[in-house]
Nucleic acid binder design. Structure first.
Lengths: 225, 225
DNA sequence: GTAGTCTCGACTGTCGGCAATATCCACACA
DNA sequence: TGTGTGGATATTGCCGACAGTCGAGACTAC
């Protein structure tokens, strides 16, 4: 789910990208911006008319959101925005940690040979943290992890990791849970360093680091179930 | 009103399942049975007429097959059956191993308390092996692993694991790679035993066991790329 | 003979409409 | 008051049709 370079297209006929992709983008943004709230229904035809399209591409877009577990659909009943809580974080992050543990092992050699992608993200993350730019912090933090997974050079692993919808869920957790983004930059720098030094513990470090997000979420909401 | 306890399926008119599900089933079976071969195109309309349905549900079914990586689609070009080789196994199984490692840790307590689901599958697997019933061997072998994941009680983990399409790919590897199903029953029995005894090594055992499948595939095809 | 262009057929992506299904509410009945 | 029944309404699931796109092959120019 890399952000497209968003080419400055003619607003009238910008249909160069499959319609369903655009719709998916709109829906995701709607969810992130709070346009739709948790538990709320998403009516296919309503969205369709709103976007001046037909029902079909909207359906397909919704199916994709379903695989990201952003919405839930029941046959003949339709789709609704998933209620979201710490519980979800607690389920997602162990899986992420497991995947990234594998990734770290597979990517160890590659990243020891050329750790520049990681270092680039660490720098950008530090800069964003200094500026207090939350959106950029999320972006580069996620991108750091994506680089590790990418370096593992395993398309199934990449695909599976992406299917967790990391940036969307991170953004949501910040929005709905007010999750604190504490000094993650430090963690990341240490991990990059460990990769460079072929530290055999790097996998565990990365895994633990991911699991820390859950604690952050837990801590920031001692009440939300 | 509470959710009804899943009334026992009317055998006569079970056409109550969404059409797209039935179509997906037909397509998967078609792939497993060799009705479509690797690299071959799958034309939406052709399938639709063949099954006496419209194009729409076929499209939706194809999308699901795409998330299982059974087919590949290119915009405006359509879907084709993925070419399949040892390479795919080599990519899938490390991911599976990582997920099941997590699962084993999360499920350890539950399964130590009640290992009967595992033991049931081990027995069934042994029986099937004795009979030489390959289909049943696959079924119970997969079901064993699914029980572990299920016991972890983490819906994201379950969902992610399922998205690997374990039984389909296992069946395919047997069909296309003539993968040998050697005495897996023994492994499974040992793992079940380890769970019962709260062996802290059980996660690693399970993970190694999964990775063994790759070696089996490798060994059985020293030629297929 | 080769490179470029045109045309044609096949197929996907999208549309608007219709039937099937779920939900809601008023109303009758015990 | 609580419970069942019938119909009205909102929405999904599916259909048949059409426009846009892609690729193969014929045709032309050199």
């Amino acid at each position: 789910m890399v952000d497209l370079p968003q080419l400055p297209e003619d607003p009238s006929k910008l249909a160069r990208e499959p319609l369903r992709e655009q719709i998916r983008q709109v829906l995701v943004e709607g969810l992130l911006s709070g346009r739709w709230k948790p538990g709320e229904r998403i009516v296919e035809r309503r969205v369709a008319t709103e976007l001046k399209v037909s029902q079909a591409p909207v359906r397909e877009a919704l199916r994709e959101l379903e695989t990201l577990r952003l919405i839930e659909t029941v046959p003949n009943k339709g789709a609704r925005v998933r209620a979201f809580g710490v519980q979800d974080m607690a389920e997602i992050y162990p899986v992420r940690a497991g995947l990234e543990l594998v990734a770290a092992q597979l990517a160890a050699d590659t990243l020891a040979g050329d750790p520049t992608p990681l270092e680039r993200e660490v720098e950008a993350l530090q800069a964003a943290t200094a500026r207090g730019d939350v959106a950029e912090q999320i972006r580069h933090s996620v991108e750091f992890h994506r680089e590790v997974v990418r370096a593992a050079d395993n398309s199934v692993l990449m695909h599976t990791w992406e299917s967790l919808g990391v940036e969307v869920w991170t953004a949501l957790s910040v929005r709905w849970l007010d999750m604190e983004l504490h000094a993650k930059a430090v963690d990341h720098a240490q991990i990059a360093e460990a990769f460079r030094n072929r530290d055999p513990e790097v996998g565990q470090m990365l895994s633990d680091h991911v699991l820390n997000y859950v604690e952050a979420a837990m801590r920031s909401t001692e009440k939300t179930p």
